[in-house]
Design a protein around this nucleic acid. Sequence first.
DNA 1: GCCATTTGACCACG
DNA 2: CGTGGTCAAATGGC
Length: 223
Amino acid sequence: MKSYLLENTSCELEKIIEELNRGREFTCRLREMIKKPHVEDEDAHIMLAEDLLRKIMTSFCVTLSILRSSECTEVSQVLKSPEEYSSGSCKTLSLKDRRGRYKRRRTLETSIKETSTLVDDGHAWRKFGQKQILNAKYPRNYFRCTHKFDQGCKANKQVQKIQENPPLFRITYYGHHTCNTFPKVSQMICDSPSNEDSNSVLLNFNSSNNNHHHFFGYDGGNC
DNA sequence: GCCATTTGACCACG
DNA sequence: CGTGGTCAAATGGC
């Protein structure tokens, strides 16, 4: 268990260094561009510079995301594997016994949005739970990033219907996306009123809901 | 057969 | 001890 934590931490450190190096590289290139007094195609030159700027911002963004989300408690979540359970202090528990064994994350939301339309926010979410909440009319739905396990992305969100007429949903985001999967450019096909059932439509969210920073229309999904 | 969702079980936390 | 967050077997859809 402890070794898992260490491995993951050093892995994150590597990621951070890699990302910072990338940022430095882009910055160097941008500097070279700025140095050039005259260029043939000025428009292309500007576009290239903006592209580099975007990449630099992305680099910062990714680095910060990793740093922000690298608490040990969350790390242990990501790495919960069968081997982890069967080794070390965990005795030979039956599969059934393992249910619900986890470290609870900090209850520090990244952002809260309220919306009347549930449309795609560009990220791939995987529903992992639904819960009836005390004094709440509608159940709360729990989602994690699809890339939680393959890329260790720690982004989570909860979606809960607050009222029916007019429909209102509260979306609470936890953590930032550290996965490298770029969100698709959302088509913003809002208002699909046929989607009445919150249980079945919750994978489609509004891109205006996202909690991401926008840098020059940056199309990356890492922040 | 694979992958996503559903749903009851399990457990951390206040 | 109650509530809410997460796990994972069962189920469903493709």
